[in-house]
Design a protein around this nucleic acid. Sequence first.
DNA 1: ACTATCTTTGCAAAGGTTTTCAATTTTGAC
DNA 2: GTCAAAATTGAAAACCTTTGCAAAGATAGT
Lengths: 339, 339
Amino acid sequence: MDIREIAKKAGVSISTVSRAINQPHLVNKKTRGKILAIVKESGYVPNPFARGLLTGKTSTIALVVPTLKNPIFGETAEGAESYLSFHGYSLITYSSLASMERYQTIVDNIRSRKVDGIILAGSGIFQRGYQEPLEDINVPIVAIEYLPGNTTMSCIYVDDITGVKMALEHLIFLNHRRIALIAGNPGMIVTKRRLEAAYKTLEFYNIDIKEEYLVSGLYAHMESGYTAMEKLLAVDPLPTAVFAFNDMLAIGAIKCIKDKGLSVPHDISIIGFDNIPTGGYISPGLTTINQPCLDIAEKAAKMLLEQIAKPATSVRKILLPCELIIRGSTSENRKKQVS
Amino acid sequence: MDIREIAKKAGVSISTVSRAINQPHLVNKKTRGKILAIVKESGYVPNPFARGLLTGKTSTIALVVPTLKNPIFGETAEGAESYLSFHGYSLITYSSLASMERYQTIVDNIRSRKVDGIILAGSGIFQRGYQEPLEDINVPIVAIEYLPGNTTMSCIYVDDITGVKMALEHLIFLNHRRIALIAGNPGMIVTKRRLEAAYKTLEFYNIDIKEEYLVSGLYAHMESGYTAMEKLLAVDPLPTAVFAFNDMLAIGAIKCIKDKGLSVPHDISIIGFDNIPTGGYISPGLTTINQPCLDIAEKAAKMLLEQIAKPATSVRKILLPCELIIRGSTSENRKKQVS
DNA sequence: ACTATCTTTGCAAAGGTTTTCAATTTTGAC
DNA sequence: GTCAAAATTGAAAACCTTTGCAAAGATAGT
């Protein structure tokens, strides 16, 4: 099913058929109608290879996320996909970003595939320079990540530095002083950034930062929050509150505390980050910081399409606010301070 | 960066370069080494359009899932993606399959894109004939769905009919007789199938099927399980056990029961289906039926690649067993039967 | 009626690769 | 040293579309 066949049936040249499809205003209304009718009837779709060979465009966007196990990335993927597909693009999602080799595989795959743009979501697994190989590919990139230093790609991100501050201040205003942290994957940029913000906030309020009150886990696994919490429960004195760097970790931690016969929030308050739906369905409900993932994903997709349309468009940095969601996992500390 | 440039640098013809890349055994070892060295050094990657134009292959697979909000499909996507990417394919994921228009958009997109194969995961949104438009595309399809009648596509699926039976028998053996059902989206094939299996099992055990004991919700939203449960709590007499058609619904239902001041499992037992990780982190832990999603996704991907390699390969139907996971949300019914 | 402008159409080149076929070179056996 | 077979290479066709350019036709203004 060629463009040639269509041309023959319509009694016009292939150029005219091509134009009827791609630049309808350039062809006579009557001719156009006839051609498009034949196209529709015959089910013809232009060969994407031949087309791509000429235009260099694939109508394909790559999305790189660390994992789909974390619902926030599921939401990101879904948000981006629905926006993009509405605008005629498809989305190739790369997940399970677990190792540097895997990352290299992904980069190679994207390169050989020729996508029109890339969305890089929270992929700062590799401390420094992880994004360079992608930049080399030389297509527009939008990062859903806080990358203030970088001037070559647009970013859209939640202000998680303020988010961390909000979370800790919430605990501090509830009179907690023995605050522990469950950080996420040590290598990731997001972990480093939140950790810095946490220390800064705690110092500001003159809160002692015990070394044993800092443990870490893996963002993608609730189980990992559980084992991290086990370590914290072995510390004396126990913390009265815990800030977990994401909700998966927080949920794991809550289960651990309850399994050991302690109560949340009575004995220990817990606050998370992300606001995944599950947080509203455990008991007690998880107090957390909301990230508007769906919104972010759509905005990122929109920005990317703008950049593709006008490559000269300057790099933009968009900051979105977080929001504190108070549920039942945090409460006022009534214990005597034995600081 | 052409194949021509490589050829010139290596002092050979483009045919030889092409062969060095695609059929290395056909070119002299020394020449091949030289060519590949130049290829690597220059970062050349064959133009996928030109290649596709000749071969008709895209090295791309489409995955259609109802939503990524349900973790089982996140796992499915991740499992398929990692397997496929290891074998040189990329995965285009279509989610948020909410309406028939959206479905048509997806089908059109897949058609115009020319993928090498399709994985259709639990997409039986549209009662009958929903898969025909995809079959028309005329590429291998593997369905992760129970499609016994269909002889044109391979299927891999969990034996959820037995799963439903196991779930209900678990409740029945715990002495429950007033059993309610929270079914999923009314239009979906999977709902219909599970419903049939449920009725069959209940009839077999001579259990009265009250009409008010059947409510439905939307698989993708826990909230929906909550409101469904509200309806059940308005029925007199109350059911002593509820079988929700998936874990999201079950988790919503549990929250509802607890919010109303009743206890799970003391007042009402709940059992779900899927075994999403969250089920192990709520309290009480969710009793459910396990589906090995990751395994299924990988097997589906594998089957698909086999079919692509050998199109003559006959259609296969693979059935995988479910497993009952007993946690705390179900217990023996001690209430007097007022049947 | 004539010119200038605008609309509509077709021709042909170009895009980068794979693959068939034939030609050439190398190898191995006698 | 000769011949047949095997290995290696290159030329050229084919894949299907988009688009610049030019030609032809239509329209409008004088």
